[in-house]
Amino acid sequence: MSSKKAAKDERKTIAVFKFASCDGCQLSLLELEEELLSIVGAVNIVYFPEASRVMLKGPYDIGLVEGSVTTHHEAELIQQVRRQSKMLVTLGACATSGGIQALRNWKDVNLMVRTVYRNPDFISTLKLSTPVAEHVPVDFELRGCPISKYQLLELLSATLAGRKPNIPTYSVCMECKRRDNVCLTVAQGTPCLGPVTQAGCGALCPSFNRGCYGCFGPMESPNTDAMIALFRNLGRSDPEITRAFRTFSAWAWQFRQASEECEHERKAR
């Protein structure tokens, strides 16, 4: 640790916290291979267990949170993290909308635990996997499963410069147009969640000849009803449409509502 004699470190401090997740979003920080050494020149990463043994106490200027809240311990921890972080940013689909593990939210979690574990009584877990914002106020949310490392870089640069990060909230369709992709739905009848999904990936799946599966979660004002109607026109069954909305951002309210509508419609029929 820096001695008292050393010049005061003016760099903003960053802490990286992990909740229920796959580690992929925080890994994005290390995936900024070319920029990494410049980043650590501009900010002081003081708590990042995946990368360092040094774990300094808060308060921190920026707290980056990966993962969703799934245990009692995590529910307490997120309160501490909020108290210690001047600015709190969620990294990716788990922290922003509960992640793939939010699929438990429509099932009996005790039954699920019994499916996976031999002695379920050792497992302490919550019924729901919830996003950070359901527990504490969040200052900024980075979408994606995983996040775009360039959006992370933009967020850090903007924060250091004292400006608002330039992160678009329009749909994947805009990125497809910009890449000159032929629309898969129009040309091939491929179901694609692009129209209701927030941009950020660079229209990756359509560029690889597959429909978008919505890993950046709902865009600002998604017309999910029209999306459902379109999927039905393309011959998709309601269980298929339900599953399409229930992946990595299943608990984001717009996707959640859409999937429940399809599910209930199915039951009503």
Binding site: F19, A20, G67, T70, T71, H73, E74, I100, Q101, L103, R104, K107, V109, L111, M112, V113, T115, V116, Y117, I123, T125
Partner: peptide, 9 residues
């Protein structure tokens, strides 16, 4: 590390 219950879902 919290359980994520992949096999179940």
């Amino acid at each position: 590390e919290p359980p994520r219950l992949f096999e179940a879902f």
